[in-house]
Amino acid sequence: MVVSILGSQIIGIIPLGDIVFYMTSFNLFMFAAALVFTFIIAISKTETQIEAEFGSLGDREIKVAKKEFKFRRFLAIICGLATAGAMVTGDLFDFTLFVCLIGIVNIGIVGAVKQVDVLDSAFQYGLIAMIASTPLFVGASLILAATGTISILAINSLTYTTPMMLFGSILLFLGVAGETGVAPFFATKAEMFRTPGSPFLLIIHLSSLLIIVRVIEILLIINKPF
């Protein structure tokens, strides 16, 4: 059986019961990218930030402490794996759970720092992530109610789009936007990046961008213009 999604053919599927992972060249590329970045992060050290000292000519080094480093690396690896999973999952609800996992791990990566400003934006980001879990799950459940299935492959073979599915997918998008912090909700996220530890911050950015690209694919699958 040849199934094509958005014009590209499915290379393979991994069935885990009702949850089926599928891969097209697009999914595969993003999956590989997420894994490669995760690997690089796992073997990297952190950078040292140099700041000018106030009132003298000296410099000040800001480093990531050993314990904090290990903790953040652990969370970063989890986040990378979750991103990779979200790229290939073929189940709407599974996808939302991956997004939630990414959201909470992102909060954790910056939550372990000492700067008050960064902690403040981590907290605000956490608030958005909490609010966003509502549209995320509601969107998925509205699509379930309208179509009777949450498998993306099954939805792909449907021929109609009802207003309810459209509403559900808009909510889904809003949920992902909140959970990953894209425009116009980017401010909380950008502030978090002022802390040292760039390899771990990378994964925050990577996960949110890849998730957004993936959610666009899912929305296009759900809503058929024809």
Partner: peptide, 17 residues
């Protein structure tokens, strides 16, 4: 089953943090 794996991972991460 995979949903539950994720779900318990979320809980675990929250506790770790």
């Amino acid at each position: 089953g995979f949903d539950t794996v994720l779900e318990s991972s979320i809980l675990m991460m929250a506790f770790v943090i």
